[in-house]
Design a protein around this nucleic acid. Structure first.
Length: 476
RNA sequence: CAGGGCGUAGCGCAGUCCGGCAGCGCUCCUGGCUUGGAACCAGGAGGUCGUAGGUUCGAAUCCUACCGCCCUGACCA
C-alpha cells in the first residue's frame, strides 16, 4: 500500500482520536525518563530512618537514607527510583552541553574484545583493575574501563580524510574499574556512569580547538548543576604540554588537596549563546590565568609568588571531570590515519574528555546538604516540589492538597505528593531528607486563612500564600 | 595489596571473654488515641546467629578454613 492510499484508508473517525492522543502525549514524551509527577503512596521510596553503619561521608549516608541507592557489592549499586531521577537529570545536562558544543552522541558497549586492546598495546599494560572475562567459547572479553581503543577503532574504519575533521564523539555509558578499594558510595564505585568524549583532529593546533570546546562545555555543564567547578592544571602524562585540566568542586570531604586563587570562584561562565566555532580563548583565558592546582602538580614557590596572601585558598576538592589531549597515543599504534591536504596519510591527534556522571550525584550532595538532609539545586532535583498534606484524612486538607497536586501536574511542574497517613513531623523530616527544593505545606492552620505555605529547602525561608499564588510561583 | 575492624530480625546494636530457652531499640502489622518538625498506649509478626567443617551431652559463644563488608594507606572519574 502506498503512503497516499494508506492515508485515504483511514477514515476521519478513526484518525482523529489518535491525533488528539498524539498531541497530548508529545510534551509528556519529550520529558526525560522518570520525570512524571508522583504520589508517594504509589511510589517506591525506601527511606532509612537510621544511618547505615557502612556510610561514612554525608553523600553516601544521605543517598542510602533517602532511598536513592542500594549497595549490591563493594562499589556496585542499584539506583532506586529517586536516585535514578537525579542521575538522569545530570546525564541530560551533560548531554545537552555536549551537543551544544558540537559533540556527536553514540553508544559503545560495556563489553569489549581483549583483541582490540591488544592492537593498541594496552591489554597487558592496563593493570588488574581491568575486569577480564571469558565467554562460553573461551573468547577473552573485558568490561570496559574506558573506550579510547574502541572509538579509535570505529574512527579508523570510517574516516579517511581530513575533510571529515574535526569530530568529537561521545557516549554516556557504564564502566567498570576493579578499584583496589572502592569507597564512599557512588563517589568511588567500581561500576560508574561516565560521559566520555573523544576528539579527532589533523594536528595539534586543531586539537587545541577541540580541547577548548570541551573546556567551555564543561564550564557550562557544571555551572548548570549549580556547582562551582574549577579547572585545575593537571598532569599531562607522557605527552607533556599544557593541555590537561581536571575540574574540581570544592568540598571539605574531597579526595584531593587543592591550592588556588580565590578569584577563580567568581569568574563568569560562558552563556548559552556561546559560539563554539569562534575563538574560545577569551572565555578560557580568565580561568587559566589564575593559579589553581591539585596537590599532584602544586608548586608552592609559584603559588606564593603568584597569589597574594589574602587570595590564597587551600582546601579540598572532588574531581568531577577531566579533559586532556593525548596526541597520537592511540592513533599511532592502531593506525588511525587520515589523508591531509597534501595527500599524505598521518595519525590523527586525539583528546579525551570525561565527566563522572554517577559520581556527580554524590558530589552535588557533598556540596549541598545540611544535618537534616539533601538540598538539591533545582536543575538536578528529582522533583521540583513536594506537596505535604499535613492532616491526611481531613476532608478539606485532602481536597486542597489533591487540588494543588493536580494543578501543579497539569502546569508541568514535577511534583511529589506526600499523601501517606503520617504525622506532619514525619513528613517534614522526609521532605528535608530527600531535599526537594520547594515544600508546599497544606494544613488546617493555613487553610483557615485560605493559605498554604511554600518553603525553600535551600535557605529555609517560608511564605504563606493562596494555593493559586503557590501554583503560579512554582510553575513560573 | 598491607594494616585494622565487623558479619546476630528490614535498619542500628547487646549477647561471644566465662558454651546451657536468641534478646533490645527503631521499623513493620492490628486496634485505640492523637495531629505544624520522625507522638503515645495496647497487642502481634519477623532470625538456617556470613558459610563449611571440627570439639562437646549441648555451640551465636571454643577451634580450623573460606566468603563478604567497612576503615586507614598506596591507586583512581
Amino acid at each position: 500500500m502506498t503512503p497516499a492510499r494508506a492515508w485515504k484508508a483511514l477514515s476521519p473517525l478513526v484518525f482523529s482520536p489518535p491525533i488528539r492522543f498524539l498531541s497530548q502525549s508529545l510534551p509528556e514524551a519529550s520529558r526525560i525518563v522518570g520525570s512524571t509527577p508522583m504520589r508517594l503512596s504509589r511510589y517506591f521510596l525506601p527511606i532509612l530512618r537510621d544511618t547505615p553503619k557502612d556510610a561514612e561521608i554525608a553523600s553516601h549516608r544521605l543517598m542510602l537514607r533517602a532511598g536513592m541507592i542500594r549497595q549490591e557489592a563493594a562499589g556496585i549499586y542499584s539506583f532506586l527510583p529517586l536516585g535514578l531521577r537525579v542521575l538522569k537529570r545530570i546525564e541530560q545536562i551533560v548531554r545537552e552541553e555536549q551537543n551544544r558544543a558540537g559533540a556527536i552522541e553514540l553508544l559503545m558497549p560495556t563489553i569489549q574484545l581483549a583483541e582490540l586492546w591488544r592492537t593498541s598495546g594496552r591489554y597487558d599494560a592496563y593493570g588488574p583493575e581491568m575486569l577480564r572475562i571469558k565467554d562460553q567459547r573461551g573468547r577473552e572479553l573485558l568490561y570496559g574501563p574506558t573506550n579510547e581503543d574502541m572509538i579509535t577503532d570505529i574512527f579508523r574504519n570510517f574516516v579517511r580524510t581530513y575533510r571529515e575533521l574535526p569530530k568529537i564523539l561521545y557516549h554516556i555509558q557504564w564502566k567498570f574499574r576493579d578499584e583496589i578499594r572502592p569507597r564512599f558510595g557512588v563517589m568511588r564505585g567500581r561500576e560508574f556512569l561516565m560521559k566520555d568524549a573523544y576528539s579527532f583532529d589533523l594536528d595539534e593546533a586543531a586539537a587545541r580547538l577541540s580541547y577548548n570546546k570541551m573546556f567551555v562545555a564543561y564550564l557550562r555543564t557544571f555551572a548548570r548543576m549549580g556547582l562551582k567547578a574549577i579547572p585545575m592544571r593537571a598532569e599531562t602524562g607522557p605527552i607533556g604540554g599544557d593541555l590537561s585540566h581536571e575540574f574540581l568542586i570544592l568540598a571539605e570531604t574531597g579526595e584531593s588537596a587543592v591550592y588556588c586563587n580565590r578569584d577563580v570562584l567568581n569568574l563568569p561562565v560562558p552563556g548559552a549563546d556561546v559560539d563554539y566555532d569562534a575563538d574560545l580563548t577569551p572565555y578560557i583565558r580568565p580561568w587559566t590565568q589564575f593559579y589553581a592546582a591539585t596537590e599532584d602538580v602544586h608548586d608552592p614557590a609559584r603559588f606564593e609568588h603568584e597569589v597574594p596572601p589574602e587570595k590564597r585558598l587551600h582546601t579540598r576538592g572532588i574531581e568531577v571531570g577531566q579533559i586532556f589531549y593525548f596526541g597520537t597515543k592511540y592513533s599511532d599504534p592502531m593506525q588511525a590515519y587520515v589523508a591531509g591536504p597534501d595527500g599524505m596519510r598521518r595519525p590523527v591527534h586525539g583528546g579525551s574528555y570525561g565527566v563522572g556522571v554517577s559520581r556527580l550525584v554524590a558530589a552535588i550532595i557533598e556540596a549541598f546538604h545540611d544535618d537534616a538532609g539533601i538540598k538539591w539545586p533545582e536543575p538536578v532535583a528529582p522533583f521540583k516540589t513536594i506537596v505535604l498534606n499535613l492532616r491526611q484524612g481531613d476532608g478539606a486538607t485532602d481536597a486542597a492538597s489533591e487540588g494543588l497536586y493536580q494543578a501543579l501536574s497539569h502546569r508541568g511542574v514535577e511534583v511529589l505528593y506526600h499523601d501517606l497517613d503520617e504525622r506532619q513531623g514525619a513528613k517534614f523530616a522526609v521532605a528535608d531528607l530527600i531535599g526537594i527544593p520547594w515544600q508546599v505545606m497544606v494544613g488546617p492552620r493555613g487553610l483557615a486563612e485560605g493559605k498554604v505555605e511554600v518553603k525553600s529547602r535551600a535557605d529555609g525561608s517560608q511564605e504563606l500564600m493562596t494555593p493559586a499564588a503557590a501554583i503560579d510561583r512554582l510553575a513560573g
